[in-house]
Simulated assay, not measured.
Amino acid sequence: MRTLTKGLPVLLIGAALAAAVAGSGSAAVGAGRGLEIAVPAYVLPGDPMLTTLQGTAPAPSIVVLNPDSGYAAFDTGWQAQADALRTATAAGGGRTRVLGYVDTARGTRSLADVEATVDNYLRTADHRLHVDGIFFDQTGRDCGEADVTRDYYAALRGYVQESVYAISPHTKELVADNPGTAVADCYLEPGHRTADTFVTFEGSADAYANGWLGGNVFNDTAGYYSGATFDPSGTSFWHLVYATPDTAGMRTVLDTAYARGAGYVYATDDVVGTPWDAAPSWGFAAQTAYAARKG
């Protein structure tokens, strides 16, 4: 059972929060946005899932690689796989960005321990950048007392930013947090933001259709709301949906994700257990092409 987030300071609960909630209705959600496919691929280098992704046109915008939750060495085999994925072109014309998976155990791992796992991806023997950033999994979704949990994740984002800059100053890093559900809006507070994008739903297609909490973010005062005001780029939220029954169901998931304010989405017919270890039966191109029609 997760605890409720603590209330935000009065300043945020005032005019700024009122504006955010007012801007979170259906007219604001989706305005001026696109929809991009972002795929967690929890397989080994050379797996058919990854070779299929490399040949998909348009390619997904993001692929997450997972060498044993970041504990296995991100060695030359993994680096070559990441490099190959990063040559593909996504629907918007940019290249696919690759993220390395790091588990945070809901904020119970020490910062030093998590940073060491980040180093596995970013501080390689050849001193080259093979990934674009980090996908932090099992993240918190509440602020914590005196924002301590939020600040833990803000520190991790800062560490990724500094590490990427040290290796490749012209590369714009990408950080994702995955609480798997709506996140407290303190995580998106200007000056303290913990990630570029947040996975605010991870679950089955049935749960997506029938168990949506009502928004990507929440606050004790406002409840659940879209979070559109915190999302000027249209890419702040990412929905991951498994056990999707068929191609028509995939399109429904993408339509729903767009309506709910997600900038990134992925749907698969893979099932609970390890739902991110195989390509969907309809293939990736059907999904990337459908998403490209949005916006």
Rank of each mutant, 00 (worst) to 15 (best):
N120E: 11
N120R: 05
N120A: 08
Y121M: 02
Y121C: 02
Y121I: 05
L122P: 06
L122D: 00
R123V: 13
T124N: 05
T124D: 11
T124K: 14
D126S: 03
D126E: 06
H127E: 05
H127L: 05
D132G: 11
D132R: 09
D132F: 10
D132Q: 02
G133I: 01
G133S: 11
I134H: 07
F136V: 06
D137G: 04
D137F: 07
D137W: 06
Q138L: 10
Q138V: 07
G140I: 10
R141N: 14
R141I: 08
R141A: 08
R141E: 10
D142F: 05
D142Y: 06
C143W: 12
C143V: 13
G144E: 10
G144C: 04
G144F: 03
G144Q: 03
G144N: 06
E145N: 15
D147S: 12
V148A: 11
V148L: 14
V148H: 13
T149V: 12
R150V: 06
D151M: 06
D151W: 14
A154I: 09
A154G: 15
A154S: 13
A154P: 00
A155V: 13
R157W: 10
R157D: 04
G158D: 04
G158V: 02
Y159H: 13
Y159Q: 04
Y159I: 02
V160R: 08
Q161V: 11
Q161C: 04
E162L: 10
S163L: 03
S163M: 12
S163I: 05
S163F: 09
V164C: 01
Y165D: 15
Y165S: 12
S168I: 09
P169C: 03
P169H: 10
P169I: 07
H170W: 15
T171K: 15
K172R: 12
K172C: 06
E173Y: 15
E173M: 14
E173T: 15
L174S: 04
L174H: 05
V175F: 06
V175P: 00
D177M: 09
N178T: 02
P179V: 08
P179F: 08
P179H: 08
P179L: 07
G180P: 00
G180D: 04
T181H: 09
T181N: 15
T181L: 11
A182W: 00
A182R: 03
A182Q: 00
V183A: 01
V183S: 06
D185L: 08
C186N: 11
Y187H: 02
Y187N: 00
L188S: 00
P190M: 10
G191D: 04
G191N: 02
H192I: 09
H192Q: 15
R193G: 00
R193V: 08
R193D: 03
A195P: 00
A195Q: 01
D196V: 07
D196C: 05
D196S: 12
T197I: 02
T197G: 01
T197M: 03
F198W: 01
F198H: 02
